[in-house]
Simulated assay, not measured.
Amino acid sequence: MNKPTIKDVAKEANVSIATVSRIINNGVGYSAKTKDLVMQTVQKMGYSPNAIARGLINKQSNTIGVLMPELSGLVSAEILHGIEKAAHSQGQSVIVCNTASVGGQTLDYLKLLQEKQVDGVLFTSQFLTHEYADFIKKMGVPVITISAYSEDRATPAVRVDDETAAYDAVKYLLQQGHSEIGMISGSPGDRLAGAPRIEGYKKALHDEGIPFDKTKVVWRNGFYFEDGREACSQLLNEHPTITALFAASDELAVGAMTSAAEQGIQVPDQLSIIGYDGTKLSAMVLPPLTTVSQNFIEMGETAATLLLDSIQTGVTSKGATIQHQIIERKSVRKL
C-alpha cells in the first residue's frame, strides 16, 4: 500500500489541499471544526508530512547538528542523551557527527551540516577554532559549545567551571584530614580540562597554606584508564607518603585504583581517591568512586534548549554554567 499524500487527505476530508497544508503548518484561515476533521483524517490515514517540504514553507529544517568526538565514550553518551531529550520534546531532529578521527574531519562535517541546512550547531567537548567559528557564521545559524574551549570568546558556552570544581574536589580531601595530596591530570597545555583543573588543585592547597609541589601533579596523553594507571604508578613511586589523590577524570581515577591494587595499596584505607566527571563508571567500580559530577545530561539538555530558543527568537544565547556536585561514595577515608 502506498503512503498517503496530502492530496489523499484533502480528498478524504473533502477540503482543499491548501486547507490541509495550512492546518498541518499551523497557519490561519480555517475553523476549529475543520481542523479537528483534518487532524482526525491525518491520524486515521497515517499521513506523515514531508519534513523537507515543510522546511521550504517555514524556512527551517527542524534539525540541529551535533559535533561530538568519541560517540562510544561515557561523557559523550550522557551529553547526547540530554541533547536528544530536549530536541525531541520540541519535535526537533538531531544529526550527530563523530569528529574523533583525523584532522579536517570537523570541517568536512560542518560542510555536511550546511548541506543538510541544519538550524543550529552544538559543538561538544573539543576545540572550536577561529576557522570553525567563521564557517558556522557563514552558515548563518547559531552555535553553542558544550564542555568545549573556543578561540572565539563571544561563542556562547554551556559548561561547568572546571577550576572551581577541581578546587572543591581537593578541598573535600582537605576537609577529610588529608594534606599529602597528589593529582593525576590532563596535560597543562590542555586549556579545556587540563590547565583549569590543575589551577583548582593549586589554589585549594594554597588557601590551606600547603606549598605546591609540581612533582605531585602527573599526567600522560589523555584522561583515560591507561593514562591513570601509568601516572599513578609514577606518583606513588615518587611520593609514597601521599594519602589522597585527585584524578581529573573518572577513567583516570579507575586507572589509579588499579595501579594501587597492583602495588598492594588498599583504597581507601591506605589511599583515598576522588574522581571527576560523575559518569556511570564511578558507581560501577569497587569501592564505588567518590567523584565530582559535571551533570552531563543536564548540560546537554540545557545547551539544546538554549540553542532552540536562539533559533526561534534570533537572539544569541548567553550560555550557562552548570552546577557541579560532589557525590560521596566509598573511595575516600576520613583521617
Rank of each mutant, 00 (worst) to 15 (best):
P4D: 07
P4H: 09
T5C: 00
K11G: 01
I23Y: 04
N26G: 05
Y30I: 14
L37H: 11
L37D: 04
V38G: 09
V42G: 01
Q43M: 07
M45Y: 09
G46D: 04
S48Y: 11
S48V: 15
I52Q: 02
A53E: 08
I57V: 15
K59Y: 10
V66W: 08
P69Q: 06
P69L: 10
L74H: 08
H81G: 00
G82Y: 04
I83E: 08
K85T: 15
K85H: 12
G91H: 11
N98M: 00
V102Q: 10
G104N: 04
G104T: 11
D108S: 14
K111D: 06
L112T: 15
L113V: 06
K116S: 12
V118W: 04
S125T: 14
E131K: 11
E131G: 03
Y132F: 11
Y132A: 15
K137Y: 04
G140Y: 12
S147I: 09
Y149M: 08
P156Y: 09
P156M: 07
R159E: 12
T164C: 01
D168E: 15
A169M: 09
Y172I: 03
M183L: 09
G186R: 03
S187I: 11
P188I: 14
D190L: 05
R191T: 14
L192V: 10
G194F: 12
Y201S: 04
A204L: 02
A204C: 02
D207W: 07
D207I: 10
G209H: 11
G209W: 12
I210V: 05
D213T: 09
T215V: 03
K216S: 00
W219N: 13
F223T: 01
C232T: 15
S233R: 05
N237P: 00
N237L: 07
E238Y: 07
A244V: 12
L245I: 04
A247Q: 00
E251K: 12
E251N: 13
G255D: 12
G255K: 08
A261P: 02
D269S: 07
I273L: 02
D277Y: 06
G278I: 07
L281Q: 06
S282K: 09
M284C: 11
L286I: 13
T290C: 03
V292C: 03
S293H: 05
F296A: 11
I297W: 01
I297R: 04
L307A: 06
V315Y: 06
T316R: 10
T321Q: 11
T321G: 00
I322D: 10
K330H: 13
R333M: 14
